[in-house]
Design a protein around this nucleic acid. Structure first.
Length: 448
RNA sequence: GUGGUUGUAGCUCAGUUGGUUAGAGCGCUGGAUUGUGAUUCCAGAGGUCGCCGGUUCGAACCCGGUCUUCCACCCCA
């Protein structure tokens, strides 16, 4: 049988894992610096926890886990005979793989509300699964790095999370644009246009402005049943790229003005950042549960015009995610980094630091069996003193062992033959410069 | 979920109208060099041509199905 991988999943080689860890470590240390605490939840959740939280499209993309045992025997014969998947599904599957980290977090907060101090700030770096059709930058299994805070509606957190986004990307040396909008402004826009009930249709259409242009958006709006007068009102909004230009248009909408005031406050609270922060009225974001400020981060198109990649981080405020699970109604706000896309972009732009190689200090090479015994003893001493050290496990030809050292990326090798074993002075070769010197055991091992 | 695209050595890819033994570069193994890798020279190994079926005297090549890759939708990180 030929080995294979499920579609949309990948293996990682050691150097790839190191580079991924570089991203995870950078993000994690910022999370810690901002006072977020780690939590963990299972990769599987009850389907009832997951369904209905991501819209119709999201439900379709959930990976379902088959029930154990005779799962078909317990299913209804009529439903089975009619091949009605929607009817059969709840009878044969009660669990699914998590689709993101936010909904499981909401479930977690409700279940542990009496053990947590609010506002509760947590982070999680973990894989999630979506049964999407894979493309580049789009996988069926991928990592998210989330920071959320629940139990406070303070706008300070929106500002803090924007700073956090900025800090992480400047630590990664990647120029980005952080775009902000508010669901309240979008709701206000729908209200002004006289289609309060069509907010979703309207936002989906205007979200495509970049891609299909003004005419395309007009067409899409009309197709979605928005009347011509409303369309021209909406197009007025799209012509603005400044919060203060949008504000007068929203004067008649209470919720819209609330959104404007909130964004104003957030923008003035943020202070100086390395990356640009822009208000973007066309920013929509699909996830159903967002109710306030929304974020999206993209690679800076001015700095890297050739990079084609969707958003690499995003997030927003949600007013009542915990309410769905019957808990106290706790407001929350959070952000999520897409580690895989960040990886692909850093790779494409060659922005990974050089030293994400093997972190070995020494590799010991022994030329005969007595030297090998000697080397194994030296190995233990080096390791005890905190040197990352490895040894070639047999006495072999030096050329062969040197080649192995080269492939391992070992920065230094210690050559041990009968001369060295007898004298306790070793030949240490620097693999980069090619220089070698004779070093006494005490000086090599060092003391602590 | 819809439409398209891709698959040949470990990797990147050639392969003529369907015709003898499917090639190259890189990588790998061994040697030149029995105590020196990354450079040089020589030699060698490595293939169910994604998989299943069909057409044909004959299929890497044509046809059907399937899996996979990537792309455009949809949606999203």
């Amino acid at each position: 049988m030929k080995p294979s991988l499920p579609k949309g999943t990948r293996d990682f080689l050691p150097h790839e894992v190191r580079r991924r860890n570089y991203i995870f470590d950078t993000i994690r240390s910022s999370f810690h610096r901002y006072g977020y605490q780690p939590i963990e939840t299972p990769v599987m959740e009850n389907l009832s926890t997951l369904t209905g939280k991501y819209g119709e499209e999201g439900d379709r993309l959930l990976f379902k886990v088959l029930n154990n045992g005779d799962f078909l025997g317990k299913a209804d014969d009529q439903d089975l005979a009619s091949k009605d998947s929607n009817a059969v599904l709840p009878q044969i599957s009660k669990r699914g793989l998590r689709y993101d980290l936010t909904v499981p977090f909401a479930r977690y907060v409700v279940m542990h509300q009496n053990e947590l101090a609010f506002p509760f700030k947590r982070y999680a770096i973990a894989p999630v699964w979506r049964a999407d059709r894979p493309q580049k930058g789009r996988y069926n299994e991928f990592y998210q790095c989330d920071a959320d805070v629940v139990g406070s509606d303070s706008l300070l957190y929106e500002a803090e999370l924007t700073q956090l986004l900025d800090e992480v990307f400047s630590a990664l040396n990647l120029g980005v644009v952080i775009r902000l909008n508010s669901r309240k402004i979008l709701a206000g826009l729908a209200e002004i246009a006289g289609h309060e009930d069509r907010m979703l249709d309207i936002t989906i259409a205007i979200d495509k402005l970049d891609k299909i242009g003004e005419e395309g958006v007009k067409k899409e709006l009309l197709e979605r049943g928005v009347d011509a007068e409303a369309v021209s009102t909406i197009m007025q909004f799209l012509a603005t790229d400044d919060l203060e230009a949008v504000a007068p248009l929203l004067e008649r909408s209470e919720i819209g003005m609330q959104g404007v005031r909130e964004l104003r406050e957030i923008l003035t609270t943020i202070g100086f950042l390395v990356n640009r922060v822009e208000f973007d009225v066309t920013l929509a974001r699909g996830l159903d549960y967002y109710t306030g400020c929304i974020y999206e981060v993209a690679v800076d198109p001015e700095e890297y015009p050739d990079v084609v990649m969707g958003s690499i981080a995003g997030g927003g405020r949600y007013a009542d995610l915990t309410g769905i699970f019957g808990g106290r109604d706790l407001p929350g706000v959070g952000i999520s980094f897409g580690a895989e896309r960040i990886y692909d972009v850093l790779e494409e732009l060659n922005l990974f630091p050089k030293d994400t190689n093997d972190d070995l200090d020494y590799l010991l090479l022994c030329l005969d069996d007595e030297s090998l015994a000697h080397g194994f003893d030296l190995l233990r001493d080096l390791r005890r003193q905190g040197h990352n050290t490895d040894i070639y496990p047999t006495a072999a030809k030096l050329g062969k062992m040197m080649k192995y050292a080269d492939q391992r990326g070992a920065p230094r090798v210690v050559i041990i033959g009968s001369r060295e074993a007898a004298s306790g002075e070793y030949t240490v070769k620097d693999m980069r410069t090619g220089e070698q010197e004779v070093v006494e055991r005490l000086r090599l091992v060092g003391t602590t």
